[in-house]
Design a protein around this nucleic acid. Structure first.
Lengths: 202, 202
DNA sequence: GATTGCAGAGAACGATCGTTCTCTGGTTGC
DNA sequence: GCAACCAGAGAACGATCGTTCTCTGCAATC
């Protein structure tokens, strides 16, 4: 009864399994780290949650730090994708910009929402882990550059993008701490004013 | 602070010393926690940094958690004071509001600036420590209420205060991560637009 | 069928965590 | 002078951390 699956050559078939396991491990790690903080989750807890033995975890990743790094990089990919998808649904440049805040609003209503994982990680580890600090910095830089592209679409001055970014960051932390999705709407309303003001002064 | 002599009415003999020690311990704890995260600092490190023996530390405070709590409450006092002082220097209501962002700007240039301790603590411990989450929440709530008072001075609609708060929060995290004080000026510029827009629509 | 290799489960390791206890030496009260 | 007490330094404690190792049993190879 143990021969039912994967009777192929094991040399190359293990790689696909490995990738699936890696993915499962990262998913569990992401969920745990996000909910309880990186240092609040031990490798044993990750083992239990993922169902992957410690030995295997350490064959998939060289260290916990590497898992943290991969989790953050995965979050970066998902965030970038999510924002881009939300923006792509709109055609008018102004609406495309505001779509960012609608994306935030729907994210904030997820029941396990606990703020921006990058801000959280920076607060916890930014002072002691240069690698984490670097990843967070480049994530935020990426977002600013993305906003710059969107503001350029409407011909707004370059000073608008950082202001809109600050609104987004503030909405994330405020929503996390207050436990409400309202900051997304408040930030959106503020963004409208800033955008319109920038456009009228163009 | 210049205190000449220990007041007799403050407490029994030895209490003044204890209070000074408690203050010194909290000062060291604040500096270390802020720089390296709460969980990144052990009690042994706090002992070394403060020069206060473990035995004494545990007579001054019942646990590390209590120290964390006191550090946060102390930060809250200092923040509230600092903002109020900066605001009090201005007389015109609009300038009083903007003084908040000038206060941020000068804070951001401090060399050991590493963001808002409350946001950082929330990211690290908010998911596991209800007490920390509560303190952070009430600190941010306090700030919002303070801003509400300032916006009421200029007769702006109540919707303005949360927007200005979001700008301040975003400026703090963005400045921390980017390592620049620029976000304070950007937030200030955005606040001006929001304030003037709110006033013209009044 | 014997041998080899590798998987999983979890015990074990050294380090460090928050917290407590022991030991020592000096001060105080009589 | 002597007993009682208390402060300080740091060892010790149990728990837990990230990481590695051992043990066991199964599967594949000659």
């Amino acid at each position: 009864m143990t021969k039912a699956t994967a009777p192929l050559t094991k040399g190359s078939s293990g790689s696909a399994d490995e990738e699936a396991l890696r993915e499962a491990a990262l998913e569990a790690a992401d969920r745990l780290f996000y909910a309880k903080g990186v240092q609040g989750v031990g490798m044993d807890e990750l083992r239990t949650a993922s169902g992957i033995s410690l030995k295997r975890l350490y064959r998939l990743f060289p260290s916990k730090d590497a898992i943290v790094e991969q989790v953050l990089l995965g979050r970066h990919r998902k965030w970038t994708e999510g924002v881009a998808t939300a923006v792509a649904r709109e055609t008018q440049p102004r609406e495309r910009l505001l779509a960012v805040y609608d994306f935030l609003a729907s994210w904030f209503t997820e029941e396990d929402f606990r703020g921006c994982a990058f801000i959280n990680s920076f607060g916890e580890l930014g002072g002691t882990s240069p690698r984490v600090a670097e990843i967070v910095r480049s994530h935020k830089d990426d977002f600013q550059k993305y906003l710059s592209g969107l503001t350029a679409e409407i011909g707004a001055p370059p000073s608008l993008a950082p202001q809109l970014a600050i609104l987004a960051e503030g909405a994330q932390t405020t929503a996390a701490i207050s436990g409400s999705a309202e900051p997304a709407r408040q930030a959106r309303a503020a963004a409208e004013v800033l955008i319109d003001s920038a456009l009228s002064r163009r």
